[in-house]
Design a protein around this nucleic acid. Structure first.
Length: 269
DNA sequence: AACGACAACAACCGCGAATAT
DNA sequence: AATATTCGCGGTTGTTGTCGT
């Protein structure tokens, strides 16, 4: 059974006040909280037949008591027909880790390289699975470097980020994130500007590299479980010596002479 | 069986960027 | 050029399910 705290009419107001936040939609009667199947159906059928010209208008036109923002989120993160669900494959996970080392918390950029995955999903998976896995391996999920390493102050990215990384790693949620004013990853800050990595260059330039094009095409042929041709067809990072595919890139980075994380041979789950 | 702790994930919020007026 | 509006992103929170005691 669903709770009913979200049913507009002031109840959410009290909630938001308690949380020290104002709701994004002040209008009374705007529903919040989990979506019902009926709402999902309304939204799906509306968008499939009309598209979404303007998210703000969608709820009204679709007959939903939601704000446009909520509709957009629901659609992009959950209802879109091209979405894949479930855990990331090892290859996807490796790619996420590698991209995170370079891009930082730019989830939308990372998600753009993973067909059928959303930024929200990847962010959640990162916070719940991958981060812990890295921590277990003794790797700082923020800097992607081993914890107990004698830092060289001027070259170490973690030294730039913080001088109390241990503390931050203890706390849940927001440990040691790169300051939002400049959300670039340590690797990025130290190396991307040089712009030597083709994959990353493509990401920066928002152009689609051949590799990613193929990824998307394969994905669009998806027939179910294994990301269609992506897994079955084996992506570059899955070939023998797959980790080398990453390591090659990583080696080319200026990581203070040290590799960033590459998860390989991880005995998982 | 009951309870609490923890994990997983859906959803919300605020902010900044992009676009329109 | 200035202001208003809309959209998208990233951080955070709440709910639900699972596991251990």
């Amino acid at each position: 059974m669903q709770n009913v705290w979200w049913m507009g009419e002031g109840s959410s107001g009290a909630f938001d006040e308690a949380m020290g936040r104002r709701p994004c939609c002040d209008k009374l009667g705007v529903k919040k909280g989990p979506w019902s199947a009926e709402e999902d159906n309304k939204l799906i059928s509306f968008i499939l037949s009309n598209g979404h010209c303007c998210w703000r208008a969608v709820p009204k036109l679709a007959g939903l008591l939601r704000c446009g923002k909520s509709c957009r989120l629901r659609w992009t993160n959950y209802l879109r027909p091209d979405l894949k669900r479930g855990l990331l494959s090892e290859a996807e996970e490796r790619l996420v880790i590698d991209l995170h080392a370079r891009l930082g918390n730019r989830w939308s950029k990372i998600a753009a390289t993973l067909p059928g995955r959303t930024d929200n999903e990847i962010k959640n998976l990162w916070n719940t699975h991958i981060k812990k896995k890295l921590l277990k391996m003794g790797i700082d999920p923020v800097t992607h470097r081993p914890f107990h390493r004698p830092a060289s102050p001027e070259a170490s990215p973690s030294a730039v980020t913080t001088d109390k990384s241990d503390e931050q790693l203890q706390s849940q949620g927001n440990e040691g994130q790169i300051p939002s004013s400049d959300n670039r990853s340590p690797a990025e800050a130290s190396s991307i500007d040089g712009g030597t990595d083709p994959l990353m260059s493509c990401l920066w330039e928002d152009s689609t590299p051949v590799l990613l094009d193929e990824l998307w095409q394969l994905s669009s042929d998806d027939d179910g479980d294994n990301y269609g041709g992506v897994i079955a067809g084996r992506m570059p990072w899955e070939e023998e010596g797959s980790s080398e595919w990453l390591l090659d890139i990583q080696d080319s980075e200026n990581f203070d002479g040290e590799r960033s994380i590459s998860v390989q041979g991880d005995p998982r789950r």
